[in-house]
C-alpha cells in the first residue's frame, strides 16, 4: 500500500514534474533546433499542468495561451524559416561561458536543495486557500490591490508594441 502522504494528486504532480524536467533537459541536449523547441513546448505544456494541480487555473491556462500557443509557434516559425541545420557550428569551444555556467548551475542547485531540505518530510499537499487561482480572485486582486502596477505594466506593453512597430517599419 501507498503511504498516507502519497495521494493520487501527488503522483500526478510528480509525474508531470518528471516530464517537465526531462523536457527541460531535452531543450539543452538536443543538437537539432526544432527538437529543442518541441521539448520547450512540451515543458511549457506540462508546466501548465503543474499549475493546474496546484490550483492556479488561470496561471496555467495563461501559460498555454501565451507561451505554448503563441510564442512557441513564432519560435518554430522562425526556426523553420531559417532552417537551422549544421548543429556542429553551434558548438562553442574554449569559451569561458561553459565553466561559468556550470558554477552558476551548481549554485542554483544548492539554493533549490536548501529550500527542499526544509520542506522534505513534511506535508506535501498544496497549501493554498480555496479558489486561490480562479479568475474571479485573480481579477479582483489585480484591479484593487495591484491596480497601479497593472496600469504600469499596461503602459510598458503599449510602449513595447509601438517600439516594435517603429523598429519593423522602414518608412513611417
Amino acid at each position: 500500500m501507498l503511504p498516507e502522504q502519497i495521494t493520487p494528486g501527488l503522483l500526478v504532480f510528480a509525474a508531470m514534474g518528471g516530464i517537465a524536467a526531462l523536457a527541460a533537459l531535452g531543450v539543452i541536449l538536443f543538437p537539432n533546433a526544432v527538437r529543442s523547441a518541441l521539448c520547450l513546448v512540451l515543458n511549457f505544456f506540462v508546466l501548465a499542468g503543474l499549475y493546474f494541480t496546484l490550483g492556479a487555473e488561470l496561471l496555467g491556462i495563461t501559460q498555454i495561451v501565451v507561451y505554448t500557443g503563441a510564442i512557441m509557434v513564432l519560435f518554430l516559425f522562425v526556426i523553420m524559416l531559417l532552417n537551422l541545420a549544421a548543429p556542429q557550428q553551434l558548438n562553442e569551444k574554449g569559451d569561458i561561458k561553459k565553466p561559468l555556467g556550470v558554477v552558476m548551475g551548481l549554485g542554483m542547485l544548492a539554493l533549490i536543495l536548501a529550500q527542499l531540505q526544509v520542506a522534505i518530510g513534511k506535508d506535501f499537499g498544496p497549501r493554498s486557500e480555496a479558489n486561490f487561482g480562479t479568475p474571479e480572485v485573480v481579477g479582483r486582486t489585480l484591479f484593487t490591490l495591484y491596480a497601479f502596477p497593472l496600469e504600469i505594466v499596461g503602459i510598458l506593453l503599449v510602449v513595447g508594441i509601438v517600439g516594435s512597430i517603429l523598429l519593423a517599419k522602414r518608412k513611417i
Binding site: 526544432v34 518541441l38 513546448v41 487555473e57 488561470l58 491556462i61 495563461t62 498555454i64 495561451v65 505554448t68 500557443g69 503563441a70 509557434v73 518554430l76 516559425f77 523553420m80 480562479t134 479568475p135
Partner: peptide
C-alpha cells in the same frame, strides 16, 4: 465544466497548429 472554459477553448485551439506545422517540417 471548467472555470476557465473560454480561455481553455482558446488555449487548446491554438495548439491545433502544431500538427500542421510539424507535418510541414
Amino acid at each position: 465544466d471548467v472555470n476557465i472554459g473560454i480561455l481553455y477553448m482558446l488555449a487548446i485551439s491554438s495548439l491545433g497548429v502544431y500538427g500542421v506545422v510539424l507535418a510541414g517540417y
